[in-house]
């Protein structure tokens, strides 16, 4: 009697809904957060290499100057900026502002536009400096 023969029915998850920008940005926020979590290994490598000596720093500099290194830095910078912009949106929501259906959709679209725009601006500065 107490043994459950079949798994209990669960409430439907995200797969039953049409993809919306708010939903996509929610996923992006978590995905960029997790990517940054592991991306911290690269910042740590660079700092430890700098502290270790010229030889170790040379290896790190070689990597970050390579094609793969640029991909990592581009990904880390966009991830950081997207997570930051999305985080500001969450803080505004925490204040109870912009929670309506229409406003949250505008904020979601604004988040991706802002994160891409700021990343492009940042890399334009990098290209000018370097």
């Amino acid at each position: 009697m107490s043994q459950i023969q079949k798994p209990r029915p669960l409430s439907p998850h995200i797969m039953i809904y049409r993809l919306r920008m708010t939903m996509l940005m929610s996923g992006f926020h978590r995905a960029t957060g997790l990517a940054l979590y592991f991306g911290m290994v690269f910042l740590t490598w660079w700092l430890v290499a700098a502290a270790s000596g010229p030889n170790a720093f040379g290896w790190a500099s070689w990597f970050f100057g390579s094609f793969l290194g640029y991909i990592v830095m581009l990904g880390f910078s966009w991830g950081l900026i997207h997570h930051a912009v999305g985080g500001v949106r969450h803080l505004i929501w925490d204040l109870g502002i912009g929670l309506s259906k229409e406003a949250s959709m505008r904020w979601a679209i604004g988040t991706i536009i802002a994160s891409v725009a700021i990343t492009i601006l940042l890399w334009l500065v990098v290209l000018i400096v370097a």
């Binding site: 911290m40 740590t44 700092l47 430890v48 700098a50 502290a51």
Partner: peptide
């Protein structure tokens, strides 16, 4: 580990 490695590197570079 991330925190320890970064902070160790930063402290070493500050004092060293």
């Amino acid at each position: 580990m991330i925190a320890a490695a970064c902070l160790f590197a930063l402290i070493k570079m500050s004092f060293g």
